[in-house]
Simulated scan of single mutants.
Amino acid sequence: MPSTTWITAALLCLAASAHAAPPEPKVLLVVSSEGRDAGKTRPGFEMEEFANAYLVLRANGLQVEVASPAGGAVEADKFEPDDDLIRAVMADSAAASLLKATRRTQDVKPGEHQAIFVIGGKGAMFDLPKDGALQRLLGAHYERGGVLAAVCHGPAALVDVKLADGRLLIAGRRVTGFTDEEEKVFGKRWAKEYPFWLETRSREQGARWEEAALMMPNWVVDGRLITGQNPFSTTQAAEAVVRALGRTPVERTVFKEEASMRLVQRWLAGEQGEVRAQLQAYAARYKVDLIGMLGYYQFESAPDDATRRQALSIMELAAPHMPHPQLKLGIARAHAALGNPKRAREVLTALLAEKPDHAEARKALDALPS
């Protein structure tokens, strides 16, 4: 007959097991294996997107694994190692280890993870859509009740995924991703080699496509399907995954990139005075060059005067803190396009006083009506 001591110990063990915390949910990040030479000879995944997603998921107590079509070490496109976001993820030795030894997608079994999040980057347009193992994994994962997310070019992995009854996963679903407009502006080197453009193919497959203005944060939640439009949508998409897993996102560090986009959103929402004062007092907290370039490229692709005015206002927000000739040229062109040649002349004249050999500025000045 067992001793009283043995029985007591056994009961204590059972009680401890009954009250033990459940294991942390597991999330699989999927990245492209395509990258070579930091994107010079073949495009890879976006390190900033990986960093944002990884840091948000880990901050919320989720386990993270990484997979790619080929497995093993993967290479990101060129990134800025001194960026505060990149420094934060590089300080996590586990993140670096995961990228050096990714799992092969064909070795991942449906049900291993509660969520799968596909990271973007131009490489995702090449190897993810043709990875049959990944297609089957994503379809089976979703049908088992898993959360499925993708950002930027990552939704390229979703467009041909079929469910068990033969229906396309995205047909009739609200989705977003890197838009055709964004591709025309930023995809010039590789876009001509893509097997398809993401927005066009998604619409062809019956998706209910949603998008925001060029490079503005935008994420779409359709039940357990979560998609983000561009790199600046990654943190919100990751937090949507956290919510879909039944958790409330914790307070976290807001890095300069996200803080800058939030500032632009507030600016466009009518908080000009507060935003201008914030930027004046704390410019070092933001990536002002990102704000300026956002306005510049929005103007370059603007289809109407309303969009041009918005782009001009963003450029002028950055201008006092970003003395770059190209930004000043963009501001002048915007004024000219909006029927204000006097202001355009003033900006160009000041630019040429600083840069007398600026050929584009001289040409733009000569083209103004006298």
Results as ranks from 00 to 15, higher is better:
G292Y: 10
H321R: 11
A302S: 04
G273M: 01
R276L: 11
E300S: 13
S313Q: 08
E274G: 14
A284E: 04
H321A: 05
G273I: 09
V264D: 05
Q298D: 06
R276V: 15
Q278A: 15
I291V: 06
Y297L: 15
V288E: 11
R308Y: 00
L294P: 08
L263Q: 03
Q326K: 09
A283Y: 03
A281N: 12
R262A: 07
A311D: 01
F299I: 13
Q278Y: 07
S301T: 08
A311N: 01
E274F: 05
G292H: 09
L268K: 05
L290M: 09
E316Q: 02
Q298A: 12
L268D: 06
Q310P: 13
M261Q: 14
A319E: 07
Q272L: 14
G273A: 10
L263H: 04
W267T: 11
W267E: 04
Y296W: 04
Q298G: 02
R308C: 08
Y286M: 14
R262K: 15
A259S: 14
W267H: 11
Q280P: 00
V288G: 12
P325E: 06
P323N: 06
I291Q: 00
G292Q: 01
G273H: 02
P323D: 08
R266F: 01
V275M: 13
E316R: 12
R262M: 14
S260F: 04
G273V: 01
A277I: 02
E300D: 12
Y282M: 12
P325F: 06
I291L: 05
A269D: 13
A302D: 00
Y296C: 02
M293Y: 10
S301H: 13
S260Q: 10
D289Q: 09
H324M: 11
Y286D: 08
S313H: 02
F299C: 11
A302C: 04
M293K: 15
V275L: 03
L290V: 15
A319C: 02
M293I: 03
L294V: 04
A269R: 15
E300I: 14
Y297K: 15
R308N: 13
A283F: 03
S313V: 11
L279C: 10
E274L: 13
L279F: 06
L294M: 06
P303I: 07
V288C: 12
G273F: 01
H324N: 15
V264S: 05
D305Y: 00
R262Y: 08
Y297F: 15
E271M: 11
Q298F: 07
Q298N: 10
M261C: 06
L294A: 09
L294I: 04
L312I: 07
D289S: 09
L290R: 13
P325R: 12
I314T: 12
